[in-house]
């Protein structure tokens, strides 16, 4: 532990820099959210309207939807779609990205395709997927993944170009098996790029999943939000949205951050 003592005059002051930072951070987050809710509540009290419900009303709606089982069901469906398209996009995008990053000819040839796919609007991909493959689960997940793949390809291609050839040569001289090369040479070097692609990926994907559900599925949060839109039920829309955001925040804090912490522990140097 770092303890800095400044023995001046009447008494010595003890400072613990890492600890104080760790303690204030969650408190700041809570305070910040509390302030937002207070502002929201004041706003809703000053301008009462059906289209701008107070936080308490949203909470009530959230409780009733949860107790009836609707919200957990649709939330689970949407989460599954997010997870499926996320892993599909990450795996396919990484493989293509690593290949394009390793072979300059292939990169030169496929780069125009990549630019094309990067610029096709998400809505077009979704509509075409539904027309060509029917209103089914595979078309929905595939369309979401296809929207994300070009982004993953670009990030992973950059990562592959930045690979250190010395490690590759070392692995060649010591005859690493292919699986060991991927696990111990390739993936650790690509880790920051995978993290960047995942971070931007999850937030993009869950937004596109809602559009996919709105256009062609009969369940999921996107479908529910469309339903409440027809009913003009803003409280329910906010309840579903906040529930999903809360789940994503939970995943970020409980899964993503500890995982990142573990995979980068070698970076903390003492020498």
């Amino acid at each position: 532990m770092t303890v800095i003592s400044t023995g001046q005059g009447e008494g010595s002051k003890t400072v613990h820099p890492p600890r104080s930072w760790q303690w204030t951070s969650p408190i700041m987050v809570l305070l910040s959210f509390a302030a937002l809710i207070v502002v929201w509540h004041i706003g809703a009290t000053l301008w009462p309207s059906r289209s701008f419900p107070a936080p308490l009303l949203v909470l009530q709606r959230f409780m009733s939807e949860t107790l009836s089982g609707d919200l957990p069901y649709h939330l689970a469906i949407t989460l599954w779609r997010v997870a499926a398209s996320f892993f599909l996009a990450m795996i396919i995008g990484s493989v293509i990205g690593v290949l394009l990053g390793s072979y300059r000819r292939a990169d030169q040839f496929f780069n125009p395709w990549l630019i094309l796919f990067l610029n096709i609007p998400a809505l077009v991909v979704i509509v075409l997927a539904y027309i060509w493959f029917g209103l089914n689960e595979a078309a929905a997940i595939g369309a979401v993944a296809l929207n994300k793949i070009p982004n993953v390809v670009v990030t992973m291609r950059e990562g592959t170009r930045a690979l250190d050839p010395r490690y590759t040569e070392m692995a060649q001289v010591y005859r690493f098996r292919s699986l060991d090369r991927i696990r111990h040479i390739l993936l650790p070097q690509l880790q920051p790029y995978i993290a960047a692609a995942s971070r931007s990926g999850v937030s993009l994907i869950w937004k596109i999943v809602l559009v996919v559900e709105l256009l062609g599925r009969s369940n999921g949060i996107g479908f529910q939000i469309n339903l409440f839109f027809q009913l003009f039920d803003v409280a329910a829309i906010l309840a579903y949205t906040l529930a999903f955001v809360a789940v994503m925040l939970f995943i970020e804090l409980v899964v993503v951050q500890p995982l990142e912490h573990t995979s980068t522990r070698w970076r903390r140097r003492t020498a």
Partner: peptide, 29 residues
């Protein structure tokens, strides 16, 4: 026919994300 080569490069070329022991073990046939 497949000689094992023990190479010491100009730079140590150790994998920074693996411990000292793992670095040595990974090279073992």
């Amino acid at each position: 026919s497949e000689p094992r080569i023990g190479a010491v490069f100009q730079e140590p070329t150790l994998l920074p994300w693996r411990s000292v022991e793992q670095n040595v073990r990974l090279a073992l046939p």
